[in-house]
Simulated scan of single mutants.
Amino acid sequence: MAATAAVIGPIARNLVVLGSGRSSPLGQYRERLGGRGADVAVGLAQLGCPVALLGVVGDDAPGERLLDRAGAAGVETGWVLRRRGAPTGLVVDLLGADGRWRCREDRPAGWLSLRDVTAARPLLTSAATVVIEPQPGGATLAAAECAHSAGRRVVLDGHPGEDPRSRVRLLAATEVLCLDRAAGSRLAGRPLDAVDVALKTADGLLRLGPALVALDLAARGTLFVWADRHLLLPPSGGGSAAFTAALAWSLTRGQGPRRAARLAVAASQIPAGRPGGRPDLSPEALAPRLAELDRHIAPAR
């Protein structure tokens, strides 16, 4: 089946370490498929979307295991590149004795190159929606412009970069922009600690190309801005992969920004079945969250 959505982003071994303490520094641990790109792709597959993943792993046994796990989760992996001689990336999520999560990353397999993006043109020009997790180098811009020139929806899940010229081009090729609180504040040049400040920031971004901007305002909620309207919903959990997957899938199905926003926030609020695990994005799990959100939706601007 042809992919309805493509996700470009990191793929890595995700080592989740639990219950660390003085007597057992590593505590209990388990390994799962990780990396932001893989997480968004799995979320889309859970929601019923035919999805292909474009990223990089090493030509080692861990890379092979990750591809097997992604395939078992319903993600097409034929576009994933195997870097010869490079180990697969590793992300370690550590739950300390104080109850706080800490993250460490190592990505020796590297990132996508411009040549990789060119080779993936058939995918980028055929998928209805292309979700891009920004990465170093020019691959992010090249992928966005390739998909945009073919009339595909580009969802940029993160900061559009520091270079002003590249940023303008990238935003012009982006239809949906998702920013967590840190990325939004960095792009605005000031903390997004008030709704009116966030609205001004989003309005400025809309003039540069995106049709929909989603901003995580932490405890103040999740702000969606499009055309001459906005919607403020409860907090979404800090820009989770489930949020991005649900937003992209809803829009791909032809639903408007309001319904897409509901589904995205509902998906992000479903707790994982276990620490470090993934949420269940089944209709049965989403239904009560959507019903709860309907009581919070405020009139659009």
Results as ranks from 00 to 15, higher is better:
V130R: 05
A127M: 10
P108R: 15
A109I: 01
L114P: 00
V130P: 03
V75D: 06
S113L: 07
V130M: 07
G85R: 12
L112Y: 00
P87R: 13
G96E: 15
R84W: 04
G85F: 10
P108V: 12
W79P: 02
W101S: 12
R102T: 12
L124M: 10
W79R: 13
V92T: 13
A72L: 14
L124K: 06
R104M: 12
A72I: 09
A120R: 01
G89S: 05
T125V: 13
L90C: 10
E105F: 10
W79Y: 13
A109C: 09
D98M: 13
L123Y: 03
T129S: 14
R121G: 04
L90G: 04
A86R: 11
V117W: 05
L90E: 07
G99M: 10
L124P: 01
W79M: 11
G74V: 07
G78R: 15
V130Q: 08
P122H: 14
V117C: 03
G74K: 11
W79V: 07
L95C: 10
T88Y: 02
A86L: 08
L112C: 00
R83D: 03
A72Y: 09
P108E: 15
L123E: 02
R102F: 01
P108D: 15
G99W: 13
G110E: 03
G110T: 03
A119Q: 14
L94I: 04
E105Y: 09
G78W: 04
W101P: 01
A127K: 07
V131D: 06
A109G: 03
G78I: 03
L94G: 06
A73V: 00
L90R: 10
R82F: 01
R82G: 06
T118W: 10
R100C: 11
L114C: 07
R115Q: 14
A86C: 08
A119P: 00
V117L: 08
V75A: 14
D106G: 09
T118R: 15
R83K: 11
V92A: 12
V131C: 06
A128R: 09
L114H: 03
A72H: 14
V91Q: 04
L123R: 02
L94W: 09
V92E: 10
V75P: 01
V131F: 08
A86W: 01
V130E: 08
L124T: 04
A127F: 04
L112E: 02
T88F: 01
V80Y: 07
